[in-house]
Design a protein around this nucleic acid. Structure first.
Ligand code: MN
Ligand code: MN
Ligand code: MN
Ligand code: MN
Lengths: 219, 219
DNA sequence: TCAAAGGTTTAGTTTTACCTAAACTTATTT
DNA sequence: AAATAAGTTTAGGTAAAACTAAACCTTTGA
């Protein structure tokens, strides 16, 4: 009941990402793990025989309680490792996801807890995503997309979507990072681009595709 | 030419452990990786097709230059991770080997080098074993077994053999660790046990099986 | 020298994990 | 209600990585 392959764990994590506790179509699952339909059908059957998921043929797949617990544990490891890579090793936030994709499968309860302690039991990873805690509780996802703030608001960036390398590069070019504070000067009603103004320094415009992946709280 | 499975890497590492650049019998290899003969024969054929080893049927297997390079790189990762686990996360030196056995397979050149830097480019792991450097060079293995010191020598413990959990537990009970200095008071000619005396504190006896796994340099 | 012993490889299975092509369900549209 | 489209599962393969049993080399000792 405890030893899972890397492939199994990736399916479990995908299931959690796509549906949480809800039912997910096998095609969506296959797509998420980068496999074809029949591979997912088979994989899901292996998982069912281990009690990690429930399958209703032609209807969909759902995590069991055991599956849910495992999913959150893997996500915990993924995000702790991302935090380690950025905070301790000095990686940029765009580089860590693919390495954490490997590290999340390392099996050692003691390692996870020692790592968490070493990082001061963080509640959020370098992208602002909540890190599931050892007891399975998940801190709330903070912030809302920049669009949802009215003109003139003071806000602080607290989270960014993992929208690929180019997105992160653009963030770096614009010197946007978690914790930065801005005033939302204006919103274009033509293309929904947004003008931000930092404490000191000139203001700049953000395209809709950029701003929709940036989350903030108001100050 | 660059992506290897965990199994492949374990065979390569075993080959290096058993023979270095020399030829190794398939049975010894199988034994080392915890598999049966036929599994090793097959594995070794896969490795040969990737140019990592040379096989002469019924004679033995040998690492190619590529294989040797890979072996040292895996060992580098193994020992860097062991160092990390002890130095940064506070693991005991008996706990780290099995976790490093997993971590050594994480693939990211950048991660290895950032980790090494974070640890101040150590030359030796927590057991005193040399860590292969990025360029493939291997620092000399330091120390010689306690038996080889004459009575009255002043010595410093610099390395211990990985002789299993019970050995490490015993070391901990006796408060022996790397860097500790002792005077070798006497050697029993009956059972070859050794009497050590720390700077301050009472002296104590070490059985031959203990002392033969402890390496030191003279001061 | 040649026959037994020991070690290695071959042959044939199993499980995981992927694939394509074909068959089958379900949902939608006429 | 029937036909089509979309999505899912079945059928049949392949490759890695392990196993057991049987055949095959090599070495050695009578
Ligand atoms: Mn990530
Ligand atoms: Mn993964
Ligand atoms: Mn080790
Ligand atoms: Mn290993």
């Amino acid at each position: 009941m405890n030893n899972h392959t890397e492939s199994e764990e990736n399916y479990i994590k995908a299931l959690y990402y796509l549906g949480g506790e809800a039912t997910v179509a096998s095609g969506a699952l296959a797509n998420r793990v980068g496999a074809k339909g029949p591979s997912a059908t088979q994989a899901v059957r292996r998982l069912a025989s281990k009690g990690l998921v429930e399958v209703i043929p032609y209807k969909g797949v759902k995590l069991t309680l055991d599956g849910l617990t495992l999913a959150k544990h893997i996500l915990r490891k993924h995000r702790l490792w991302e935090t380690f890579l950025v905070e301790k090793l000095g990686f940029g936030w765009e580089e860590v996801h693919s390495i954490a994709e490997q590290l999340e499968h390392i099996q050692s309860r003691e390692l996870v807890e020692k790592l968490a302690e070493y990082l001061d039991s963080p509640a959020h990873d370098p992208h602002g995503d909540p890190i599931p805690q050892a007891d399975g509780k998940i801190p709330p996802a903070v912030g809302k997309p920049l669009q949802q703030f009215p003109q003139g608001s003071s806000l602080k960036v607290v989270r960014v979507e993992d929208a690929g390398t180019d997105f992160f590069t653009q963030l770096d070019l614009l010197k946007i990072s978690l914790g930065k504070e801005y005033t939302l000067k204006s919103v274009s009603s033509f293309d929904f681009s947004i003008q931000l103004q930092a404490e000191e320094g000139e203001s700049f415009w953000l395209s809709h595709s950029m701003s929709s992946n940036i989350y903030a709280i108001s100050l």
